[in-house]
Simulated scan of single mutants.
Amino acid sequence: MTARPLRQKTIGLLGGSSNVATAEYYRLLNDEVNARLGGWDIAETLIAGMNFGNIEALLRGDDWDGLSRYMAGKVDGLIAGGADVILCVSNTLHKPLEAILADRDIPSIHIVDPTGAAIREAGLNRVALFGTRPVMELGYLRERYETRFGLKIVTPGAAERAEIDRIIFDELVKGDIRDSSKRTYLEIADRLAAEEGAQGLILGCTEIFLLIGQPDRPEFPMFNTTELHCRAAVDFALS
């Protein structure tokens, strides 16, 4: 007999970016814990759901300072609520998150780390990165992949980046999954493989796996940051 209540660490989800991604994180975390523990067991979680309208406006306005202040208040709420670890449901928002957590005594799981480890385990060293424009155009995630995991990151061209970003903000964060957008993403991935030597693809936005996935290109490895992040969080929570 298992003593109750069963002890596990509480995962603090910094959510709302987007609500679609947050719902998938909650589902995946609970599914993973249940797969490991069985019965009726699921994860212990706290969710701070940010208003994605605020996130979108601050990102579009390139107001990283305002975004950091907004996020910091939500992180503090998770800490006050008893979270044992912070999990941010957005690749994009890891840019301000690192500085926020540097001043706070709580561990976090960076979304790059389980993804980079999976890529290295697969024996790849040159991979493409899809995500929002900040993810693809700024260096904060690319540099972590390169310095910590020795990877070469390939990004799409300017027009392709704009269309990838548009599909994320206009469709995926609203749960709008379109065949035409799937074709666009796969065409860009195919070009990066053929012309840029990409050996695989990082799904570097936490909604992208709802649009494309490994079955679409069985011979071209895809790395789902959402799923990998959740698995790493469950490893921590049950350790």
Rank of each mutant, 00 (worst) to 15 (best):
E163Y: 00
P156F: 08
T155F: 09
V127K: 01
G157C: 05
V75M: 10
D105C: 12
T115Q: 07
A99T: 13
L78P: 08
K152H: 13
R178K: 13
M136V: 04
S108M: 14
V89S: 06
D76E: 14
D84R: 09
D179A: 15
M136C: 04
V173N: 08
R133E: 14
L78V: 02
R161I: 10
L141Y: 15
H110A: 03
K95C: 02
H94S: 09
E146T: 11
I167T: 02
V173C: 12
T115F: 00
R144S: 05
V135E: 03
G175T: 10
N91E: 04
H110Y: 04
K74M: 15
R166N: 12
V173G: 04
R183T: 15
I100P: 01
A159Y: 06
S108P: 02
D176P: 04
E121T: 11
P156S: 05
R166M: 10
G157T: 09
L101Y: 12
L141R: 07
R142F: 13
A80H: 11
L151V: 07
G73D: 12
V135T: 15
I168D: 03
L93S: 05
I167D: 01
Y140G: 03
I100G: 07
D84M: 11
L97N: 06
I167Y: 01
A128T: 06
I167C: 00
A162M: 11
F169Q: 02
R142K: 15
A118K: 06
I111M: 09
A99L: 11
A159I: 04
T92F: 08
K174D: 04
E121G: 08
G131Y: 13
G175L: 06
A83V: 05
L129Y: 09
L141D: 07
V85W: 00
A117D: 05
F149H: 07
A128H: 06
R120K: 13
Y145T: 00
A83F: 00
L87M: 13
H110F: 02
E160K: 06
V127S: 03
R166H: 14
P107I: 11
M136R: 04
F130E: 07
L124E: 04
K174Q: 10
E163I: 06
P134W: 07
V127Q: 04
T115I: 02
I177E: 06
A99F: 01
A99D: 14
A102L: 14
I168L: 06
A102G: 14
L101S: 08
K182M: 10
F169Y: 15
E160F: 08
G139T: 13
G116P: 10
L97C: 08
G139M: 12
A80D: 15
I153H: 02
A83W: 00
E163Q: 14
